[in-house]
Design a protein around this nucleic acid. Structure first.
Length: 229
DNA sequence: CCCTGATTCGC
DNA sequence: GCGAATCAGG
């Protein structure tokens, strides 16, 4: 897999949007393993995983026991088929990674969950697709948020300090991200990195039935082939 | 069974 | 660094 800047950007975007690893993988035409692996290497914020138990920082530290790191994945079978007896005998634990529970953690002050305005239902938008398949990325639709139509100018401010960026309260906030000027559907192709100040979405008029504009749809749907229909 | 994400480890 | 294989919880 060639992780170009663009693919990484897409991965990060989709990841931050809360899509499942498998879904991201499908959209990127890679396996979920690749997605997870890369995401991990990129240090992307781990999303709530089903088996996320791992004793966060409990007081297990007392003794160097317990927490059998999990049986050596069958991989180990080929790794040390012979020299097993002398180490497996003394300790049921693995030969590596003795213990390190309270080590990595507390790194995400702003655990941005799913942005309500951006990803209402991240899972399966199920758009009316035809030739393409059904696994389209969730369109960044915010019709509810911006459906109000002010009758008068909402900006009575004459000319004082506009103060576009009075402050930067939240690390990640959809409020800071540009919002399509119009209500209608807009291309949700990410420009820049999510979470960074300049991040925004394309905003152009998307193709009918697609979350991206023509330009970005061409990139997004380069090759949709694999699926397990 | 299916799904999910995490981890390990050969390459 | 990459990702298949595997693990493991729901």
């Amino acid at each position: 897999m060639e992780w170009t800047d663009e693919t990484i950007a897409r991965l990060r975007d989709l990841w931050s949007q809360g899509l499942s690893t498998a879904e991201i993988g499908r959209q990127l035409s890679i396996t979920k393993n690749a997605v997870v692996g890369k995401a991990h290497r990129l240090g992307l914020p781990p999303r709530p995983s089903p088996i996320r138990n791992r004793k966060v920082q409990d007081g297990e530290a007392g003794t160097t026991e317990a927490i059998p790191r999990r049986k050596s994945p069958s991989r180990a079978k080929a790794a040390e088929p012979a020299a097993v007896d002398l180490l497996v005998d003394k300790n049921a634990g693995p030969s590596r990674a003795p213990a390190n529970v309270a080590e990595k953690a507390a790194e995400k002050p702003a655990p941005v969950r799913k942005a309500p305005s951006l990803v209402p239902e991240a899972a399966q938008p199920a758009p009316p697709v035809t030739s393409v398949s059904r696994s389209l990325p969730p369109a960044a639709k915010e019709p509810v948020a911006a459906r109000r139509e002010p009758a008068v100018a909402p900006r009575p401010e004459p000319r004082v300090a506009p103060a576009p960026r009075p402050a930067m309260p939240p690390r990640f906030s959809t409020a800071g991200i540009d919002r399509p000027t119009r209500r209608g559907p807009s291309c949700c192709w990410p420009i820049g990195d999510p979470g960074t100040p300049g991040f925004h979405f394309c905003g152009a008029t998307p193709l009918p039935g697609k979350p991206y504009c023509a330009e970005h749809a061409a990139i997004a749907y380069v090759k949709i082939r694999d699926r397990r229909d």
